[in-house]
Design a protein around this nucleic acid. Structure first.
Lengths: 144, 144
DNA sequence: CTCTCTGCAAATGCTTTGCAAACTC
DNA sequence: GAGTTTGCAAAGCATTTGCAGAGAG
């Protein structure tokens, strides 16, 4: 399946507008940064930085929060550092986070999803795929 | 299935001693709390609280860190809140953490393990089972 | 007695919040 | 013009660290 294209800046902006939220310069900037980052994981500070420091960090958090509420952005907490945000609808892809280099790889996978549900369903547990990360060591750090 | 018994307070203390670390009253207290919590996930503050506030938070962190270094305690970061610590060696069981009530259920599962490896192996990624948690909503919170 | 550990307090890093001014619709 | 947003600054958590005194071996 062709993974649905990550939302473009315009899509994000349109989403804000559709939700009745106002489209302001700072929000446009944040949307542009997110869209250009693709699937890359950015911290709030990264986003703020890429807007050319034109947007206050608190505003970035508020905007990210709004977008997340619309389901157009996801955020995860990996290890100790700051939370990571990235565009994308609630797709079925999971994050593999390297404990050593901190790099993140994501995999779109049904098998895993099905296996997880096979475990959680009997327990009545509803897994949140978006918030799901597998920690370990990536090829580079593990292999040597 | 009888999951291998979590370490007892004595085991933890013995571990410290074996590592050449000193066995002090605060450390004993932390070990006792961890042992009595079983597989429950505790934040550093929880641990401090259960010692009867007899142990300073910074000391709790230092002790937890020491025990983690010995591989007798694991810690994970779930969602936004504080990190969660719990006793236990690197077993092959995973944690289902409820975002709403914070309760944790653990499942010892091969299917899941195999599915995960099926995904990560091709990428050369080495998953760390102990650090692995599935976030979602438990039956009580999801079902209503 | 020597060296580690503890408690206190201050510092740090990430995120949130109060509020008046700026801006969107 | 009405009501949402912004930026600034300060507050709020979780966690770490410096240091002198207390305690373990």
């Amino acid at each position: 399946m062709a993974p649905s294209e990550p939302s473009s800046a315009d899509d994000l902006v349109a989403g804000l507008r559709r939700a009745g939220l106002r489209v302001t310069a700072p929000r446009r900037a944040v949307c542009a940064v997110l869209a250009s980052a693709g699937e890359e994981h950015l911290t709030a500070a990264d986003v703020a930085g890429r807007t050319g420091a034109a947007v206050d960090l608190s505003t970035v958090y508020r905007t990210l929060d709004a977008l997340e509420g619309l389901g157009m952005v996801q955020h995860v907490h990996l290890g100790h550092g700051a939370g990571a945000y990235h565009v994308g609808p609630s797709e079925d892809h999971h994050h593999l986070v390297c404990e050593e280099c901190g790099r993140t790889v994501d995999v779109a996978l049904e098998t895993l999803q099905r296996a997880i549900e096979g475990v959680t369903a009997p327990l009545g547990f509803v897994p949140d795929a978006a918030h799901f990360a597998i920690v370990g060591r990536c090829a580079a750090c593990a292999g040597g």
